[in-house]
Amino acid sequence: MQIARRWLERLSLENFQTQLMGMVYGSGHAVLSRLDPRSMLIWYLFFAIAPWFISSLTVLTGMFLLLAASTVLSRAAPFILFILCLGLIGQVGWLFLLSLFFGGDAESALPLLKLTLKLSVVSLASITVFSGMDPERISDGLLALGMPATFSFSLSYGYRILPVLLEEFRSVLLSYRLRGKAPAAGRFRYVRLAVYYLKLLVLSFYPLMLATAKRSRTTVEALEVRGFSYGMKNPTSRRLKLAHLQLSWRDGAFLGGTAGYIALLFWLGYMQVQ
């Protein structure tokens, strides 16, 4: 309950918005953002999949260390890492406790530790790539790798519209609060407070839906007028859009370095055991 209260106090939408947008677009100077998005995405793909098929603790730990370093380089916002930790504890912690309950012992901690490592490698990889890179570059990279144009557009539009949506949401929530009545002090105050806020959150979507509907209409009309659907069918436009993507020595060094490091890990993990 104490935690819930602290959350509520710190849960300022404004803070959240500033942090998030700062993280997403403030990463222009991060080292990783200079890499070609395609190489980053391929790199990501490896770390998103390979861990599931690896059982060596050494390899997993090594991967974890690499990704921890890359996460630092990508300058991810602290609160994102906080969410990650919460998620991991929630997912694995309970499994451990329950397996103890069903007759497991500390032995069962080892596989679960591996599971934790696997999960965190996958998550850190996605944090590195998706918060260390400008969404525009990600969306170009995805387009270059063959994702549909609607998807890559939606990605960059999502980032564009987020501050607007949050702004709108804040004012709707404010309207509810200015005219509402918060639960007074008394028994179960925090439970009632949580229920109050949750209810507001749900109710807010009624005005928000109407406002967003109006907004979508203008947006889609404007997209049409400015040739968006024409461009989607037009290969020249796609080529132009992606012309700026260029693989450089940096990408080679990055991918090569990672491959070398992983090879070393495998050697350590599987050879040394013998």
Binding site: P135, S156, T218, T219, E221, A222
Partner: peptide, 14 residues
């Protein structure tokens, strides 16, 4: 064409 709610017309981040 520039809309009255011009904010919704801006679709790109920069």
């Amino acid at each position: 064409y520039v809309y009255q709610d011009f904010d919704n017309q801006l679709v790109r981040p920069t």
